[in-house]
Amino acid sequence: MIIGKLKEAIICLRAGRVTLRYPFEPSVVPEGFHGQPQLDIDKCTGCGACSMACPARCIEITDEADQRTMLYCLDRCSYCARCQEVCPEEAIVLSSEFELATDSVDDLRVTARFDLVRCEECGEVVGTRREIEKLAAEMPEKTGISVDQISWLQLCAECKRKRSLETARDLQAPEQ
């Protein structure tokens, strides 16, 4: 029996240390690890696609006056990376950060603010200024429409329907 225990001890000693010295040296995460989402505020246009995709509803969007506030409640995040998949600007990326223990929940909350553009006619929210500037910059090159023709970007859907008809009507019966 004692010989059996000795054999066990020898086997254990031969294997050496099998665990990481983690708190004392950094733990390297594998590639593609889903850690804390990190927002690149310079790339983000505030379109809200991530907010729609997030199954845990971590990303709250509130439109007030001329400002859109996006609140990232990362304490609720389930690290599914849906936001990273849908983001058209690649502005939100799941980092390798996983040591998220904190005394204050505010450390896990990120707020981003964007200028809103409201419809020229009715005041309905059209989109953020960044979205509209991006479209205005890309549109002439991609569709061949000249810059001064693109007047509809500042209008909501309903006012665009009316404006396009009025334009056609005015072609027929010019103002007198």
């Binding site: 989109g127 549109m139 509809w152």
Partner: peptide, 11 residues
């Protein structure tokens, strides 16, 4: 992905 860019772009 419901980003809404087409809604803004449609004339």
């Amino acid at each position: 992905i419901s980003c809404g860019l087409c809604v803004i772009a449609c004339p």
